[in-house]
């Protein structure tokens, strides 16, 4: 069985309490991160009509919200619509926010409901099983490794081992940007949303688990598979150019 599919003991590492209660199973409910310091203050400012506070969170949180919305709906335009509708719901509903989660987690919860509903209207189906076929199997072509029975079974074959991408890879040019954007769009939905939130948006693992209701182990499986695919695309680009 490929190693990546195994559930391993480990953590998104949100809090010590979460670490103790973790369970190497599927669908573990992860506690949302505790209210950030300043959350109470932020809520008070929003309730009081502080336009600067509102503008700040709209600008700071909308990029990640678009990634999450896009998971449920069929297009970027539709995702923007869901995010806008969410902010309108937040404007009207902030008085009802009870502070049981962080404000941010609550906003993403509102977003998930709105985007999911919109996705249903669009008849978009989102795979709900935590790990499906696309999330199993080796992430690197097995042909690149020495076969069983070989003295160094499972080691890279000399001619197929990864080679340095050279100094070119250090600077991100517009071609690489376009390649990555296209490759992201081709990922399975759950892999895409996880890598967008983690690596494009820079959200911590614990928050991504809470937003998407993923177990820490599944979050890492999805992230690893997505990273491995994108690395492979970059490898094709850089090594192709070296040879050409």
């Amino acid at each position: 069985m490929p190693v990546a599919v195994l559930e391993r003991t480990a953590a998104c590492d949100i809090t010590a309490a979460d670490r103790d209660s973790r369970h190497p199973g599927v669908g573990v409910k992860v506690q949302p991160p505790p209210a950030a310091p300043g959350d109470t203050d932020l809520v008070a400012r929003l309730r009081a009509g502080d336009a600067a506070a509102f503008a700040h969170i709209v600008r700071a949180w909308s990029p990640a919200m678009i990634h999450v919305a896009r998971y449920f709906v069929g297009s970027h335009a539709s995702a923007e619509e869901a995010v806008q509708e969410t902010w309108l719901a937040v404007i009207r509903g902030i008085d009802g926010f009870e502070g049981r989660s962080s404000l941010r987690t609550w906003v993403f919860h509102v977003l998930s409901n709105i985007a999911r509903r919109q996705g249903v209207k669009e008849s978009r189906t989102v795979l709900s099983s935590p790990v499906d076929g696309e999330d199993a199997g080796p992430t690197v072509d097995p042909a690149r490794f020495r076969p069983a029975g070989d003295q160094w079974a499972g080691g890279w074959r000399a001619e197929a081992a990864p080679r340095s991408w050279g100094p070119e890879a250090a600077a991100l040019n517009s071609e690489v940007r376009a390649l990555l954007t296209a490759a992201l769009a081709q990922l399975p939905d759950r892999q895409r949303v996880v890598i967008e939130l983690r690596d494009v948006g820079g959200l911590p693992a614990g928050e991504v688990c809470a937003i998407l209701d993923l177990s820490p182990a599944n979050q890492r499986v999805l992230l690893h598979r997505a990273r491995a695919k994108l690395r492979e695309r970059l490898e094709g680009y850089f090594t192709g150019r070296e040879q050409g």
């Binding site: 990029p63 995010v83 990864p162 250090a170 690489v176 890598i195 690596d199 690395r231 490898e235």
Partner: peptide, 21 residues
């Protein structure tokens, strides 16, 4: 090398322009 390339991939993703409203 593989590990470095994974890191490069992550860094490259982090410098993609954010899509926002």
């Amino acid at each position: 090398t593989y590990l470095e390339q994974l890191r490069t991939t992550v860094n490259d993703l982090g410098s993609l322009p954010a899509q926002t409203l």
